[in-house]
Write a protein that binds this DNA or RNA. Structure first.
Lengths: 149, 149
DNA sequence: ACATTTCAGTCAGTGTAACTGACCATATTA
DNA sequence: TAATATGGTCAGTTACACTGACTGAAATGT
């Protein structure tokens, strides 16, 4: 990912990464302060993808673009910390559904609140209109960059 | 980083992360194909921050938001693979400057070309105008999200 | 109905990349 | 010149990513 860096024209990858990283850091600081200091970014990236009725490990792996082994490792951690649970999949005896527990669900509004806060700060810096455009552009970009969707 | 996911309104963090990840993957595939298969994303994130006249380890660590130990570890790898070299800092006997080697510099146009390609694809999908707005918004966002800058 | 193939998930093993804490040597400051 | 700050390394731990090999259940094709 190297590129010439003429002081202001960073490559688009780094430009995406920098705010992502800043947001991530704030969210995890808030979670830690609320007593959820054991969740890690990698765990959260999987957690985020769990559907309302639970998701299969394989699907989580695909969505997060990691191997099923890695997904299994992360879900193990989340399970031991009681953020998720595994229940049998009634439609397929091979599979199990990873489901968010009550404790897991409790973290969601905390994250959501910080993210809303950050978005407000960003909107204040960019202006409401540009912030909306940014979100719209990224959402459209997802159509061609999210292999799962 | 958890958040409600109403099917289309993903949180802004994930929206930033998805295209970042897609770009990263393409760049590393291209580098691998060109015979530079040993560079890793973490190494590249440090490499990218090296200034034209070399940079100190501490500065690289700050810019990449990692500890100096981690930065040292990554630079060791880059050095062993001959992408960078360490020379004494003439202005401070404690410090050394990490500098891009010829071999390291050779990777830059490869990455740049793929990134240009991807940006063209994204521009085709969003339209030139929106792509320019996206870049502009992200660049401005950097003002409040890049603790180094 | 049964053999084959596909699919969900685990086990085992490896390497990379992140952290903390302790430390040394040189620079800077009081 | 004594105290403190800074640049960097050493040692140790943990997390997370991969590949390859495997088990058991499901779907598919004779």
């Amino acid at each position: 990912m190297p590129e010439d860096v003429p002081a202001d024209e960073l490559n688009i990858g780094l430009l995406l990464y920098i705010p992502y990283r800043a947001l991530e850091e704030r969210v995890f600081a808030a979670l830690a302060e609320a007593g959820y200091g054991d969740v890690t970014p990698a765990q959260a990236r999987v957690f985020q993808r769990i559907g309302p009725n639970g998701s299969r490990l394989t699907d989580l792996a695909a969505a997060a673009q990691i191997t099923k082994q890695t997904a299994g490792f992360l879900v193990d951690r989340l399970e031991r910390a009681r953020y998720v649970e595994r229940i049998p999949d009634p439609t397929d005896a091979r599979a199990r559904l990873v489901r968010v527990t009550e404790r897991g669900a409790a973290t969601i509004p905390i994250g959501a609140r910080v993210i809303a806060e950050i978005e407000a700060e960003w909107a204040a810096h960019l202006g409401q209109r540009r912030m909306a455009q940014l979100r719209a552009a990224l959402t459209r970009l997802r159509e061609i960059t999210d292999p799962y969707r």
